[in-house]
Design a protein around this nucleic acid. Structure first.
Length: 651
DNA sequence: ACGGTTTGGACC
DNA sequence: TGGTCCAAA
């Protein structure tokens, strides 16, 4: 978070792309009759009309705000269209928004390094692309310029409201401009082009900030919305930051920002300038102190991570107030729903991205109605993750029981009540690329649910002390383990009848409507280009298409000739043949992987998969071992073997 | 008792 | 490390 990173003279070109009221746009694309109407996305319509989680711009004009209830919104704007978030398994299901986000990412990732920052935000490092453009395309030759670029907001540039576009054009093409401003101008072209592609291919609008670092780009992307872009020039930084309320800065919206205000009287970023680095370090520690000192000056060396896929998957739900869960049975019922969703998403990730998760974590919030004095938090617990909804549930229940016992202490009897769960979530993390040649394993994981019930005595890794939990057993659960003695463990024997029903229903309806990066990644790039030129989207493209075609041939050319170039030096060194093989091999592996990650991967193989192997059917075990061992050697000895592809930065 | 649900990152 | 806490959207 606030981690200091030096880097003063920063000539990178960084863009932050932010989708406009994203959930609303997704719903409006799904139901076109909502277009142009005041719309908001709401969840849990039951109470007070539900809570608004996204508000369209038409509705905002009428005074509808996020953090309003559906009912309030109706009051302010009677014509408002309230769309509910999809519900699956009794909880909000964000799948369609995640998938829509992936569509966007796959487009934005065509240029430079791309980091998926959230479901609807992306950072791009366009430094190389901008430099190339500057080198190969003399700025003064860009006389015909995209409408979209001309609509850019250039901070620090004085407009008169009349010749705005001409003034922007002049700035963009100034021959005597600062080198870094020229690069920004190139970045603006590239981003405008990307935003147009996003619009044409997804029908979504977005806004963007173009600056020399992530912090400033993020700041700028929100300054002119919707569907606009803002450039942070060198000369504008000081004037931009000085009057800016401290809370507007990325990491200062919380307690740190409050502390700055109340403890130091710092209300604007400019106020921060008064404090020496040492002083700030004294108060907030070396890292945070330096970080604060830097951001006050617009300095932030934060790198754009090349990451298109999430690092974890989670599924959770809150049970506020009286809805708190008070029995183990109800907790298990909800854990089952959560684990099903998680498992489904893990399967999908495995199939489409060839990734496997290694850690399962359970989080919960709870209260004790008895003693309000001990404010003990419900501890989160984790264990190795085993694939299959049944296993995940089984382990989650154990994790919960362990946490509950710790939470209550050894005095209280869990069955006697006195406690309530207000939040429950399961998540999967430590996700790494699965090796190639795992098709049969994928199949195995895929069908695992059908072959196994939850009751085999697996899992030595996971042990609980028993005793205090025994009273927890309900009719359905004769739980528990012996700990130390390590004797046979009468695993939790879930009521298998309900389990079987469960196992058979959870197969995979998943794959149906699931858009993933790969599915949208233009299969080959060739048809893509044609599409850009020829495809017309009458309802949507507004008039941009026409202007682009005749106005920016040079830009088009630029974009096309570079569309396959790699942003990574190492990759460039590979022969084209190898590169191609690598592309095929990693077709669905979006993330670029560096060497640091390679060693991490090797570690994981040795450490974890060994135990997994024993759970596999014999014939598959053989296959696993064939790539398990040689791989290790190939890794340390020579590169270029099959598996080395996974360590090569690609794309 | 809350907008709810998801993510990511830092610290120890 | 795992677990806790923070922050953001």
């Amino acid at each position: 978070m606030p981690v200091a990173r030096p880097e003063t003279s920063d000539s990178r070109i960084i863009a932050h792309v932010d989708m406009d009221c994203f959930y609303v746009q997704v719903e409006q694309r799904k139901q076109p009759h909502l277009r142009g109407q005041p719309t908001a996305v709401v969840q849990y319509n039951s109470w007070k009309g539900g809570g608004l989680i996204a508000v369209g711009y038409e509705a905002r004009k009428d005074g509808v705000k996020r953090s309003m209830r559906g009912d309030e919104a109706k009051k302010v704007c009677p014509q408002i269209q309230l769309v509910q978030v999809p519900v699956a398994r009794g909880k909000a299901d964000l799948t369609i928004y995640r998938n829509a986000g992936s569509e966007v990412v796959s487009i934005l990732a065509r240029k430079g390094r791309c980091e998926r920052a959230s479901i609807d935000e992306v950072y791009l490092d366009l430094t190389e692309a901008a430099e190339t453009m500057l080198k190969e395309t003399p700025i003064e030759s860009l006389e015909s310029i995209d409408e979209e670029v001309l609509k850019s907001h250039v901070l620090g540039l004085c407009l008169n409201g009349k010749d705005d576009k001409e003034i922007v054009r002049e700035w963009l093409t100034r021959r005597d401009a600062d080198h870094r401003d020229k690069l920004l101008a190139c970045g603006a072209f590239i981003v405008a082009e990307l935003r147009l592609q996003v619009l044409q291919e997804t029908e979504f609008t977005c806004s963007a900030g173009i600056a020399h670092n992530k912090m400033l780009a993020k700041l700028a992307s929100g300054m002119n919305k919707p569907a606009q872009q803002t450039i942070v020039t060198l000369s504008s930084v000081k004037g931009l930051l000085e009057p800016l309320p401290i809370k507007k800065m990325k990491q200062l919206g919380g307690k740190l920002g409050s502390s700055l205000q109340t403890d130091l009287g710092v209300n604007t970023v400019g106020d921060l300038l008064q404090f020496s680095e040492e002083k700030l370090q004294d108060i907030y520690g070396a890292n945070t102190g330096t970080w604060l000192w830097n951001i006050a000056r617009g300095i932030s060396g934060d790198e754009v991570e090349g990451r298109l896929l999430p690092k974890s998957h989670g599924s959770g739900k809150t049970f506020p107030g009286v809805r708190a869960l008070k029995t183990l049975a109800s907790v298990e019922k909800w854990l089952k729903e959560l684990c099903e969703e998680l498992s489904e998403r893990l399967q999908l990730d495995l199939e489409t991205n060839k990734r496997v998760a290694h850690t399962l974590t359970l989080h919960a919030n709870a209260y004790k109605s008895t003693d309000t004095d001990s404010h003990k938090k419900f501890p989160s617990k984790s264990c190795p993750l085993r694939y299959g909804a049944g296993k995940i549930l089984e382990d989650s229940v154990k994790l919960f029981q362990a946490g509950l016992r710790e939470f209550l202490g050894s005095y209280m009897n869990p069955v006697s009540g006195g406690w309530g769960i207000t939040n429950l979530s399961v998540s999967a993390s430590k996700i790494v690329a699965a090796p190639s040649g795992t098709s049969s394993i994928t199949r195995y994981f895929h069908g695992q649910d059908r072959f196994h019930t939850s009751s085999e005595p697996s899992d030595e890794k996971f042990k609980l002390e028993d005793d205090k939990l025994s009273p927890l057993r309900t009719e359905n659960h004769s739980a528990s383990h012996q700990t130390e003695c390590g004797g046979e463990q009468p695993q939790v024997t879930h009521d298998t009848s309900s389990f079987d029903r469960y196992e058979t229903t959870c197969k995979d309806e998943a794959t149906e409507g699931c858009l993933t990066l790969q599915n949208h990644e233009p299969k080959p790039r060739l048809p893509e280009k044609e599409k850009n030129i020829n495809d017309e989207k009458p309802s949507y493209g507004q008039k941009r298409k026409a202007t682009k075609e005749k106005g920016t041939s040079s830009i088009l050319r630029f974009l096309q000739t570079n569309s396959c170039s790699s942003s990574n030096q190492e990759t460039k060194c590979l022969s084209s043949g190898l590169q191609e093989a690598l592309d095929v091999e990693n077709e669905s592996l979006i993330e670029s992987q560096n060497n640091r990650r390679a060693s991490q991967w090797r570690y994981n193989i040795d450490e974890i998969d060994q135990s997994v192997v024993e759970e596999l059917p014999p014939e598959i075990q053989d296959e696993v071992r064939t790539w398990l061992r040689p791989q290790k050697q190939a890794n340390t000895v020579k590169r270029g073997s099959n598996i080395a592809h996974y360590f090569s930065p690609q794309k």
